[in-house]
């Protein structure tokens, strides 16, 4: 991989992701804790949507002449325009981060449809999945899952699976996920296919945008990390 930004990479925040030196994310719940003098702990949290927060350290010492399109697209987005990102679909070198861990093939996964949500559980219809066998590990803990088609889909929020799910029998499976199902103004995803692994997308907006510094001949650095947060509407 070149030490300079590849002008063929996708622009905007996706370009920053694709060439990042490091990607940090957190999904913190809004929580309070107390510990009594007798050592008992009590926990209280707010039933929020738990948005994703990303901190991306951009690659240093990029070639300015190859980065002008990226800079322009970042300035266009600024802190005001949400955009969509993925980790691994556009830059396959990153796909290991979000890679699907189950045993079903893409052709089998394509036949799964979303049935209904119930809090922290999704019910998925797998009756149309061909060649499935008893004990198949459909999802492993940490798998990424998103109702609807990628990027242009009608549902915008990704989830992660919180426990290993196997298929034994029947036409449905119950998948526990990391956060409660967030209703989408675009409609209920019931009956639609899902997106898995590195194909999931996040709708994000920048909350902290670094400045650009050109130093030396044709060398560009960002002065700080990029921070963006998932947009939940």
């Amino acid at each position: 991989m070149s030490c300079f930004y590849n002008a063929n990479d996708t622009q905007g925040l996706q370009g920053v992701i694709n060439t990042a030196q490091s990607i940090t994310w957190e999904r913190r719940k809004i929580t309070g804790q107390t510990m009594s003098r007798s050592g008992r702990t009590r926990i209280s949290s707010i039933a929020s949507a738990v948005p994703w927060n990303f901190t991306v350290k951009p690659r240093p010492r990029m070639k300015y002449s190859q980065t002008r399109e990226l800079l322009e697209s970042l300035d266009t987005l600024d802190l005001s325009i949400p955009t969509t990102i993925n980790i691994g679909a556009n830059n396959t070198n990153l796909s290991y981060i979000t890679e699907y861990q189950g045993v079903w093939t893409p052709a089998q996964l394509d036949q799964i449809t979303f049935t209904s949500p119930s809090g922290l559980n999704f019910t998925l219809d797998v009756s149309g999945v061909p060649n499935k066998t008893f004990g198949d590990v459909v999802f492993r803990k940490g798998d990424f899952i998103q109702p609807g088609a990628p990027i242009t889909g009608s549902y915008r929020y990704p989830y992660t699976v919180t426990d290993t799910v196997t298929w034994s029998s029947g036409g449905t499976i119950t998948v526990p996920v990391n956060r409660p199902f967030i209703p989408d103004a675009q409609g209920n995803p019931t009956g639609r296919s899902l997106t898995f692994g590195s194909d999931v997308t996040w709708s994000v907006v920048m909350v902290s945008k670094p400045s650009y510094r050109i130093s030396g001949y044709d060398i560009l650095d960002f002065t700080d990390d990029f921070r963006f947060v998932e947009v939940i509407v």
Binding site: R40, R42, I43, S44, S45, I46, A47, S48
Partner: peptide
Amino acid sequence: STAITAVTGTVSINHC
């Protein structure tokens, strides 16, 4: 305010 039902047997509550 009104009395809140005791949340016995659990250390975590969730509210809005």
